[in-house]
Amino acid sequence: MSRESDTFVLLPLSVDSELSVSVKPSPHNPTGLAAEVPVNPKRSAAIAKLRTSGNDAYKKKQFQDACRIYSLGIDMALARPAWEPSGLVKDELYLLYANRSQAFMAIGNWPEGLADAEASIDCKKVGNPKAHWRKGKCLKEMGRLEEARDALELGLEYGGDDSDLKSLYKEVQEALEKRR
């Protein structure tokens, strides 16, 4: 049985000479007005609950459980129907990936932490200083100092005036100087 939030209606679009897009009237959309895209609020609530549960497990230092719970949230966000707004999916994913990155870092799993930090940054570059910091920290811990420096520079460019980013950048710069 199909629910309204589980259906997709293809609307006929037209593009005029000025590249303006409009929806043509059709049997499913007699007015020709753009329809709101349905979002399943239960899925959104479940994803938010998984993120909160993962945060609770992390606070209790149950890092493996936190990783597992964040993974469930990531899977649920990625399973959203294709017609739901991609911005919504990215907003959910950047937080989940960033949090799972931190949980991986807490158990010393630097490669997985790095992969999740990068995924978080891919979802949201600007205004995501924690993910940039986590990427730099993972690279530093893996001994990839030049890459860490470059990642932190990018983070400072996108993340603004974050004190944690600046502090880690300084640490990496000092480590690079000692290496020379």
Rank of each mutant, 00 (worst) to 15 (best):
L78N: 10
A48C: 07
D75S: 05
I121E: 02
P27S: 11
D56V: 08
A98P: 03
A35F: 05
K130D: 04
L11V: 04
Y58N: 00
G127W: 15
L11T: 00
D91N: 15
G87K: 14
W83M: 05
S53E: 13
L114I: 06
P85N: 12
P25S: 12
A79N: 05
E112Y: 08
A106R: 14
V15Y: 06
K49Y: 04
I69V: 11
A34E: 04
L93H: 07
R51D: 06
F63L: 08
Y58P: 02
I47G: 01
A66P: 00
V89P: 02
M76A: 13
A98R: 06
S26D: 10
K124H: 09
L50N: 00
I121M: 10
I74Q: 01
I47A: 01
Y70C: 03
P111L: 03
L13Y: 14
I121P: 01
L13S: 10
L95Y: 02
D16N: 15
A106V: 13
V126F: 08
A66V: 04
S86T: 07
A48H: 03
A34N: 01
A57L: 02
T52A: 07
P81M: 12
S101W: 12
G73R: 13
W83Y: 13
V89R: 10
Y58E: 03
A45V: 06
E112N: 14
L13C: 04
K125Y: 11
A57R: 02
A35W: 11
L10M: 14
G54C: 13
L33P: 00
R43S: 06
C67G: 00
A117S: 13
E84L: 09
P111F: 03
A77C: 12
R68S: 02
A119I: 07
A57P: 02
S14Q: 15
E84W: 11
A82K: 12
L50V: 01
I107T: 09
P129H: 13
L19T: 03
E18F: 03
K61W: 05
P81R: 10
V9G: 01
T31D: 15
Q102V: 11
D122M: 13
I107W: 03
A119K: 13
A34T: 03
R100H: 02
E112F: 13
L19Q: 12
